[in-house]
Design a protein around this nucleic acid. Structure first.
Lengths: 138, 138
DNA sequence: TTAAAATGTTAGTCTTGCATAACAAATTTA
DNA sequence: TAAATTTGTTATGCAAGACTAACATTTTAA
């Protein structure tokens, strides 16, 4: 039974593991350290914590794999990220990089309820391009 | 010359000092500890840091006052809070308490640029109540 | 005006998350 | 395949931010 709560930092590591595995089928600690701009030692430490919480499978010098619970959790985080980024980018008209950077932080904070409302709002706005255009020219 | 950067935590303390002083003219450490749900010891520590950064005036057993730089900074934080809360509450229709709690965290993260766009968006939406009503009944 | 209560401070500890340096293992390449 | 390089781990330390317990000061009230 994986423990539910992850810190922002551990969520970032899990998200990175998921993305890398999705992309390449595997992930190495050094890639994580580059993606997240942290030392290899910090990655080892974080991976041990994620394994202890049963979000990944991992042991000394072993290949990293992600559990079902890890996949579920990672997808939740990534979904949050995407909804937030889309709001900033597509509704407010913020640049892609600024939208992404801010979304990276807010994804760890926003509640499920607000997320759902925001997601609906994004959809509603994209069904009303006229409104968004008037806002942008305003 | 006050140092610019404050951690999320110190921003919370400064915001609390500002609000209490605005409300009552004075603020006591114990009130801060109750508002922020931390120990009196943590308050002492935070106040020393804020004083060292010249956002407040403070010394051992002395009355707490806020500097000009502190007022400016606090108002920026509170403005961020209000814009974010208003978006959640008035645009998305989130409850006041959930909007406030989430805004409390996002206020430490959001960039000036996104804030400005969000603020404009709030204004634009309030000038188009029909759009918001259609979203809410959707 | 003291004794009790409330408030504030200090000292020491814990946790998280990061770092560097030294060492271990695995991989690459000459 | 042996040496060099890369990658991973461990040990250790630091900083922020919180805590509790003990002590100091201030305030309240008997």
């Amino acid at each position: 039974m994986p423990e539910a709560k992850l810190s922002s930092s551990l969520e970032d590591y899990l998200e990175c593991v998921y993305n890398r595995i999705n992309l390449n089928g595997v992930v190495k600690a050094i890639e994580i350290s580059k993606d997240l701009n942290v030392s290899r030692a910090s990655v080892t430490e974080a991976l041990n914590k994620l394994a202890q919480k049963e979000y990944i499978n991992y042991g000394r010098y072993e290949m990293i794999s992600i559990t079902e619970a890890g996949i579920k959790k990672a997808r939740e985080i990534i979904n949050k990220h995407n909804v937030i980024q889309s709001f900033f980018e597509d509704v407010l008209g913020v640049s892609s990089s600024e939208a992404a950077n801010t979304a990276c932080q807010i994804e760890h904070i926003i509640t499920e309820n607000i997320l759902e409302k925001l997601s609906n709002f994004n959809k509603f706005c994209s069904s009303e391009p006229d409104f968004i255009n008037r806002f942008k020219n305003n």
